[in-house]
Design a protein around this nucleic acid. Sequence first.
DNA 1: ATAGAGTGTTAAGTCAGACTTATGCAAGGC
DNA 2: GCCTTGCATAAGTCTGACTTAACACTCTAT
Lengths: 254, 254
Amino acid sequence: MSMICDMATSRPGADGSTGLHARLVETLGMAICGGELPPGRVLFIDELVSRHAVSRSVVREALRVLASMGLVASRRRVGTQVLDASLWNVYDPLVIRWRLATGGRIAQLRSITELRTAVEPQAARLAAARVRPIDASELVTLAGRLWAAGQDGRMDDFLALDIEFHHRVLTASGNEMFEHLHQPIAEVLSGRHAYGLMPSHPHVDALQMHADVASSIQRGDGERAHDAMVAIMNRTMDETRHLWDMQSQSTTPA
Amino acid sequence: MSMICDMATSRPGADGSTGLHARLVETLGMAICGGELPPGRVLFIDELVSRHAVSRSVVREALRVLASMGLVASRRRVGTQVLDASLWNVYDPLVIRWRLATGGRIAQLRSITELRTAVEPQAARLAAARVRPIDASELVTLAGRLWAAGQDGRMDDFLALDIEFHHRVLTASGNEMFEHLHQPIAEVLSGRHAYGLMPSHPHVDALQMHADVASSIQRGDGERAHDAMVAIMNRTMDETRHLWDMQSQSTTPA
DNA sequence: ATAGAGTGTTAAGTCAGACTTATGCAAGGC
DNA sequence: GCCTTGCATAAGTCTGACTTAACACTCTAT
């Protein structure tokens, strides 16, 4: 991997770096997404300097980054105000991560899962038309290993393979916006696993659907790949829908 | 609109603000997205201070924001390096805007248009299940006005109504990630209009499809709303596909 | 000749003080 | 009660100093 790509991990919080900037962005971001700093709350630079024992420039730089994510907005004479959740950039990888780690988890999980139902079938269709033969072959191989891991109940392997499978489909779609969704999708899949939301043994039907997606993509059958992925997404929705049905839907009209 | 929402416009460049920070973010962001600062190029803080006649803290804050968008990465002793386009956050509203305004226009246009073919049909389906009656009624009204503007050839009105129509469908879907796509979609629709990529008179079939979406949503017929929106998106793809077919597809596998 | 260790230089990161500027809010006048 | 004005407040910007991470080069041992 070239150095140009290596350097991307220097994003605040992205690599667990311990720089003051990255830590403050993480601390404030989590506090905002978790509701500890609720919308409307006004923050002052000098107060944050004292509370977090860092210099003014560390605070200012952190607030600039949070503002670009839509979490806060600064105004002269007023201070820096925490914004309503509806203004947050829900596609920012860190916002997604913070919400999945805090009280916004269910809302974020539902948002991404619904987005997946739209995106992944279409990605499968495009992949069937654009995939390189070598990548299609690897996808079929991946589906085979997924099957074996599922049958054996090796859930850690299954999770890793499942993430890789969906990543490969998104990449093969040839659409950069689809491809960039792989990281939040990976986090959602990891989260489902961590929260015990996946069956202890994937149903053989689910395993077959993944195989269908792979072989349809390999054969260039976009419609069939699309439909097989729709089936996977419908099953995923059925398995996770109860999570948000159990609580008031903040984004569902009253 | 409450002050909490008002303050969101303080994002750098979002409101044409003339602060030094916002201007530098815009200048560097456009230069990077436009290829004037190509991937691999190393920037030094002191050089940027001289070239742009601003202080070090203005430069540092701007680079922090650009780094959070994935456009650059700073490393001690090395400098700040422009990253490969594959690492940019393609969902960041400013990155989208800069690419639409520079050489990345066609790639971004294609990405968003393909994303729309995935998202908007699903949004229409969800909207049918979730829309409030008052909003459904307004959507039908909007479709009627769209029809009239299209028939009369009032293209400015047609554009504004078209943007509003798609925005309302995305909002009615009840999914925040769908809703947040309305801004880049609006920019794409505006861009198509500005580049003369829309027919001077929308075909009556296209007008009918919008009416179908609206009435299906009002009747709660998700499948029909979905299919009508698929028809709109297919037509949109047919009208714009030649733009990227004319040039080497950077995201299509070789 | 090559690999590893050590060191120095380089650039970012952090700190602190000073000054500027936008603007919100309160007071006073009409 | 409303409008204007002035002041205080907080962010924005500038500058100098210092710290620190780490890259690159040199030297030594094998």
